[in-house]
Write a protein that binds this DNA or RNA. Structure first.
Lengths: 134, 134
DNA sequence: ACAGTATTAGGAATTCTTCTTAGTAGAGCG
DNA sequence: CGCTCTACTAAGAAGAATTCCTAATACTGT
């Protein structure tokens, strides 16, 4: 999957609307919630288009896809909070060795949430993926 | 979905092995990677059992399920790093209003990862889910 | 040993996401 | 203005990940 930087990028009505609608809300919608939002403006848009554009936009860093690449969930045998490193390309997750000060939250800042723990994840491109891109 | 605290919990051979294997590794395996690991010890285990037990164990806080509840990805129109609140029950994500100091990472601590950004997520139970549990 | 029930295997069903194909539409150029 | 090139789209099929269902199994307490 090489980088093709000489491709013309087109801001289609669909792509523009998806981005605008996503920026309008303060929630963090799933793909099909975005689909519903956009469909009120462009009733003929397809779900595939929404997925493709969310992909496109997040790969450019214009929007954020929470939870990183890959559709599978990952599990950690150590339940104590500790920082992770996640590759945005291949989805791999490993423990971060550097000592990091975990932020904490006072009860009155928690907006009503209970049993809070803090997950810190550094998201980037792992050495293997960085190599295979050249 | 009420809390039934008088249920006997049974530590079956399957559940025990899943936990032991998960604790053995420093990677953060997906459910089917756990399935592969455990199958070398209990060849007749089923994938459904692995899923059910990973669910069970993470709901008890014995292991960690990264990326929270819900299988759908969520999108954020604001690409600048900012802390989130995620409900481990319903999967909802919202912006945290309290100002938090985001940890940062020196290049030599990044274990070869590049283009790093930092995601901070506080995971807990949102007010709505806390209510519906009573 | 017996009853009651938590747990399992196996596979079907569901849910979410990606892919395929044929067609559409915008940009550059004569 | 018409032509060409190609990014993009709609529609639905295909694929992948996860959950659900059912009958059978195996602990646990009595």
């Amino acid at each position: 999957m090489a980088i093709e930087s000489n491709k013309t990028v087109r801001l289609s009505r669909q792509r523009e609307t998806i981005l605008a609608e996503l920026r309008k809300v303060k929630t963090h919608p799933t793909a099909d919630e975005v689909y519903d939002m956009v469909r009120r403006i462009l009733p003929r848009i397809s779900l595939g288009t929404v997925y493709r554009n969310l992909d496109f936009l997040s790969s450019r860093g214009v929007v954020l896809r929470l939870g990183g690449a890959g559709t599978q969930k990952r599990f950690d045998g150590t339940p104590e909070p500790h920082p992770h490193l996640r590759c945005s390309e291949c989805g791999r997750v490993e423990d971060l060795m550097a000592p990091i000060h975990l932020p904490s939250l006072a009860a009155e800042e928690a907006m009503g949430y209970t049993s809070l723990r803090c997950d810190v994840e550094f998201v980037g491109i792992c050495p293997m993926c960085a190599n295979s891109k050249m």
